[in-house]
């Protein structure tokens, strides 16, 4: 690691005041310290914020749930309210990493996870995300793990988070503290961004902004939910493809659907059109298959990841079927 000064922030004010453009907030450290050891992240100051008091879970005034930005992933996933009303979120979180890592990783930090693209990690290879202007090694290289949606000429990396796929299906907003002490709310869909010509920016966070809370919408998929994660070993592996599926059913019809996919784009990929398509339909295999076709129709794979189109379709059908099949 490069040398850095360490600041253990005792409160929000101290954290915000300590911030400079070359510093980095430190949450659980599970991603940041790894990247610092890899020399990908090079802050000259770490401001530890994991101990700040944003660790509560409470009912918000919109009938949803607010979860603290500094709460650990495991405490969040296992919170009785989250498990009862947002089991899709719990399941997505529990599919990620390991118990040790979930005990460390914070909710805010999870949103800021950086890609696992191997070109991003290896300093000797080009990567526009790591070093803007150096090129993208993956486009003409090894792209089996890469995007099939929403990529650009400069970056085809995918977002690695599972929790964020769950959040995308559920619908949420992110609350951040601005350096001036005020707060702002970002719709979850606007939080992560597509690479465009600036792949070095994963999110729409501004410098110095600190994630303090995630607000969940009123629970709608507490009974019919499933998070499917397809990976190269049975646990402790990032997804090739993952699908978060939530259904609300009334009188044998789908009244609301949430559907998002991981491992396919620079951000969690929410299928808004498919969600609308499913509403009003009677849930059965053929509808789910039609939904899958619709979802994947615009997929544009590379040489190494054509499998993702087929896998994606099957994953959607399976996740929707599993969600539907749950006993309510």
């Amino acid at each position: 690691m490069r040398p850095f000064t360490y600041t253990g922030a005792k409160n929000k004010e101290q954290a915000l005041q300590s911030y400079s453009p070359t510093s980095h907030y430190l949450g659980g450290g599970t991603n940041l310290l790894d990247l610092m050891k890899e020399d990908v992240e090079r802050p000259d100051q770490l401001i530890e914020v994991a101990s700040l008091d944003y660790k509560k879970i409470f009912q918000n005034d919109k009938g949803g749930l607010t979860i603290g930005g500094m709460l650990s992933n495991s405490e969040t996933a296992n919170h009785p309210e989250v498990r009862k009303n947002y089991p899709l979120l719990s399941m997505s979180m529990l599919s990620a990493a390991t118990a040790q890592i979930r005990n460390m990783a914070t909710n805010g930090g999870n949103l800021l996870q950086r890609t696992r693209c191997p070109y991003f990690f290896e300093a000797s290879m080009p990567c526009n995300k790591r070093e803007p202007g150096s090129g993208c090694g993956a486009i003409k290289g090894m792209n089996s793990l890469h995007a099939i949606f929403g990529y650009s000429d400069s970056c085809i990396a995918v977002h690695p988070s599972d929790m964020c796929v769950g959040l995308a299906a559920l619908g949420a907003t992110v609350e951040v503290q601005k350096p001036d002490g005020s707060t702002r709310i970002i719709a979850f869909d606007d939080f992560h961004r597509l690479p465009g010509s600036q792949p070095e920016k994963d999110t729409n966070l501004m410098p110095g902004e600190l994630i303090t809370a995630i607000h969940l919408e009123r629970p709608e998929f507490s009974e019919h939910y499933y998070y499917l994660k397809i990976r190269e070993r049975s646990s402790y592996a990032f997804a090739l493809i993952s699908v978060a599926a939530g259904l609300q059913l009334k009188g044998g019809e789908i009244t609301k659907a949430g559907l998002a996919m991981g491992g396919v784009a620079h951000k969690p990929w929410k299928f808004k059109e498919v969600e609308k398509f499913l509403v009003g339909k009677k849930p059965d295999e053929s509808i789910f298959e039609a939904a899958a076709e619709l979802a994947m129709k615009d997929a544009k794979p590379f040489e190494g990841n054509t499998y993702k189109v087929e896998m994606g379709k099957k994953a959607i059908v399976r996740a929707l079927s599993q969600a539907y099949a749950r006993k309510s």
Binding site: P118, G141, R233, S234, S235
Partner: peptide, 24 residues
């Protein structure tokens, strides 16, 4: 896995090289 243009191993960490875990 071999990176075809640079000749390095693209699987370069224990997160990329999947040694079996308990659940396997």
């Amino acid at each position: 896995k071999i990176e075809p243009n640079f000749g390095n191993f693209i699987t370069r960490s224990f997160a990329d090289y999947h040694a079996p875990v308990n659940l396997d």
